[in-house]
Design a protein around this nucleic acid. Structure first.
Lengths: 244, 244
DNA sequence: ACTCCCTGAATTGTATGCAATTTTGCGTGC
DNA sequence: GCACGCAAAATTGCATACAATTCAGGGAGT
């Protein structure tokens, strides 16, 4: 099949005003673009865990040759979103139940750390912003705006990550969250759960504003432990722990 | 230069005794082998941060074509050990000082979690094994066996990771440790530091055996905070010299 | 002498071709 | 009818060829 015969754009065409670039951002390669797209398809649920990722098919779909597809798959494999068996192709990662439990626990601990750091180091302005975001989500709950809440929920948690002031930690948390995304699809279903989630968020925000790191960590663990409930049938989970 | 024209081995040469493989281990691909080898070269310090990773050179060195090299580099880029600028080649990752500080802090927190989990969930036998390993390291300190201690030190920390009972967490911790490895090269230099390190380990082990999660976490933070001291000079050294 | 531009070389990104292995379908024997 | 084995097809792994961009050096212009 003669794939990828589309007219190639003549390049990002560096404008002369780009002489002093704010950030070095030479046009992304096809492999990176592909990796992003495929990753989105996976986290969005369009490609559920277990889906076979055939190189030639992906190449045809995205209008490129197999080479960038292979590189994108390697990237995603290192990220953990896909699984590559040496001569047997790649599939969307499908962790075993025990593994999933481990990832959820790690996620909880990572977020607990972030929340602790938020409580300890966040500035007044940032705390206020977090609180206002939380208040806004409260209105979404009242109005039954489920979709909006789901998006805001992701943003809220990411705010905790970056609020930790530790970019590396934020990346670890974010990466873990993305890897878990395909398994949280059916979450936040009922309106009860929505309200409960918001209330738990409230505890987290309160602890952070109060500057109580231990309380913030604890509140996060409570929150994540309950959200795990939706998949809990999958695996028995190890006991939660407490540390400072 | 016509690289990689060496006679290709007729394959990993699956020995007939391999007919009934204990585990599905289809021979690793060249890209994976390469990634492992390059990663070792980086963590060992043979390729210090900032080293340019030219594809064709690596291909020639390892006797393969550029294709597996590129895939290996993608893998390592996703791991964070190397940095890929879109059209400008790859180099061994050289995080900025601030970033390094973040990574060390995250490392400490990850290990603190692991130690907490060790204290909370480790079985009696495993605790005993950890203690005996610690005792062995004590003898190394007495005898001034610096090299052996360095190796044992890595093993000790990895024992904490796997002792957490959470494989995913262990992977995160291990990956972070590998990324930091190039910046700890000159560590554990003096004998004083050796003894101090061992003493700090002792606090960790004691807390774990006592089942005191909070104390274990605290001891780990103390330990890592002091070991960080040795890299301060190193990190400040190259103030991000502004070359490409 | 310095700057700018232009050209050539080096290097990366992508496509394609071939070899090897896995997978699949079918026929044969039990 | 079912299991086993073999052959064809499909798919991955690797190498090479080509295209495009970046980098380096020199020469003309100011």
């Amino acid at each position: 099949m003669t794939t990828a015969t589309k007219a190639r754009a003549p390049s990002p065409a560096r404008l002369p005003t780009d002489d002093v670039p704010k950030r070095r951002r030479p046009g992304p390669t096809r492999a990176e673009t592909l990796a992003t797209r495929i990753a989105e398809a996976i986290t969005d649920g369009r490609m559920p865990p277990g889906t076979a990722l055939e190189e030639e098919r992906l190449a045809a779909i995205h209008g490129v040759s197999r080479t960038p597809v292979r590189e994108a798959l390697r990237l995603l494999a290192a990220t953990g979103l896909v699984e590559q068996r040496p001569r047997r192709g790649a599939v969307v990662a499908r962790p075993e139940p025990g593994r999933l439990a481990e990832m959820f626990q790690a996620m909880a601990e990572l977020e607990a750390i972030c929340a602790s750091l938020c409580a300890a180091t966040m500035g007044r302005a940032d705390k206020a912003r977090l609180a206002s975001r939380h208040a806004m989500m409260g209105r979404m709950v009242e109005d039954g705006w489920v979709d909006a809440y789901r998006d805001a929920n992701v943003t809220f948690h990411e705010a905790l990550y970056v609020g930790s002031g530790n970019g590396y930690l934020a990346e670890l948390a974010d990466a873990t969250r993305r890897r878990l995304a395909p398994f949280r699809a059916a979450q936040l279903g009922g309106k009860d759960r929505l309200a409960a989630s918001h209330q738990e968020h409230g505890a987290i925000v309160a602890a952070i504003i109060a500057g109580d790191a231990a309380a913030a960590a604890a509140a996060v663990r409570v929150h994540l432990a309950t959200t795990e409930g939706s998949w809990g049938a999958l695996a028995g989970q190890p006991p939660q722990l407490q540390f400072g």
